[in-house]
């Protein structure tokens, strides 16, 4: 933060900045710029979001789907969730899962982005193409491929581990134990999320003037110091965005668990999104499913509050 503003402050007289602020405040320009995007999002999502909130206060099952009219039941869906011990287990599991996935994604994503910035152009193209390939693989397909890799009978992983004498992994069942099962799921999620984080961070890195790095290095800063005091502050806005996005996405992980558990996960593999989906589409309690989904949004807002605040403030620090 300080380095970023420091850079800017050094470059511009305070007087100019005060004048500019006054100028940018007035006028309809920002609204005109925002209008197209707002209209599209508002027109498409406004009514459905209103419906979603409405559903969460109603009993809405198959008969209500047919007549298009729900029965108002007040807060009963919400009280039912809060009194369901399963909800709290699922919530805790989801939060833990998200924390683990976001940290691992950011760690590996940043490392790979830094690596990309230092590679020669051929190697960089090779690695980025590889990352894009990973990203481009449809989730349904990639999850199935991972499922094969950890398969009980045919898995490459069991075969390799056994050949490497890491133990007897013949007929090792990775999903028999929930912890190792979630380990596999985490690997799939992080693997799939790394390309986006790495490529975006690399794009942001490429905006950082190389001169800054060199100047710092000439001054005798180590690699870690350069990263911490030069690179990181400049990357901070993008970094915060990526962390919050990762939180939002990992909190909603669905396909990876759903497909890996054969479309019928047992209770100990439930995450919030699965819980909401099962209540909606399997049990046909759309009111309850909506309430779970909205509770998810609230929890996410709380969990990511710190980052959201940072982002809202980020523009004002100048």
């Amino acid at each position: 933060m300080s380095a970023e503003t420091g850079l800017r402050v050094a470059a511009e007289p305070t007087l100019l900045s005060a004048r500019r602020r006054a100028r940018l405040t007035r006028g309809a320009a920002p609204y005109a710029l925002l209008a197209p995007a707002t209209i599209v999002v508002g027109a498409v999502l406004g009514y459905p979001l209103y419906l979603l909130v409405q559903l969460s206060f109603q009993k809405y099952g198959l008969p209500q789907l047919l007549t298009h009219h729900g029965e108002w039941t007040g807060l009963s869906n919400y009280t039912r969730i809060l009194h369901d011990s399963q909800f709290w287990h699922v919530l805790l599991r989801t939060v833990t899962f998200t924390a683990a996935n976001v940290s691992l994604t950011m760690l590996f994503g940043t490392l790979i982005a830094l690596l990309l910035a230092r590679l020669g152009s051929f190697m960089r193209l090779l690695l980025t193409t590889g990352l894009v390939l990973v990203w481009a693989t449809p989730v349904v397909v990639s999850v199935n491929v991972w499922l094969w890799m950890v398969d009980y009978e045919f898995g490459v992983l069991n075969w390799t581990l056994t050949k490497l004498h890491a133990g007897n992994f013949v007929h090792h069942d990775w999903f028999a134990n929930t912890l190792s099962g979630f380990g596999v799921i985490t690997a799939v999620v992080v693997w799939g999320a790394i390309p986006f984080v790495a490529i975006t961070l690399y794009a942001a890195l490429s905006q950082v003037p190389e001169e800054l790095h060199e100047a710092a290095r000439i001054d005798g800063a180590s690699f870690v110091q350069v990263f911490r005091f030069v690179t990181m502050p400049l990357l901070k806005p993008i970094f915060i965005i990526l962390v919050s996005l990762s939180i939002i996405w990992d909190f909603q992980v669905f396909n990876q668990v759903w497909i890996m558990r054969d479309g019928r996960p047992t209770n100990d593999y439930y995450l919030m999104s699965i819980y909401s989906f099962v209540e909606s589409f399997r049990v046909s309690e759309y009111g309850l499913g909506s309430a779970i989904a909205l509770t998810m949004v609230l929890v996410m807002l709380v969990v990511s509050f710190f980052y959201v605040r940072q982002m809202v403030r980020a523009g004002e620090a100048e």
């Binding site: 398969d151 009980y152 009978e153 045919f154 007929h171 069942d173 999903f175 028999a176 054969d262 019928r264």
Partner: peptide, 12 residues
């Protein structure tokens, strides 16, 4: 049987 005890009849 040496099939997995935790999968169903369609996986694989």
């Amino acid at each position: 049987s040496r099939a997995s005890l935790t999968t169903d009849e369609s996986h694989p």
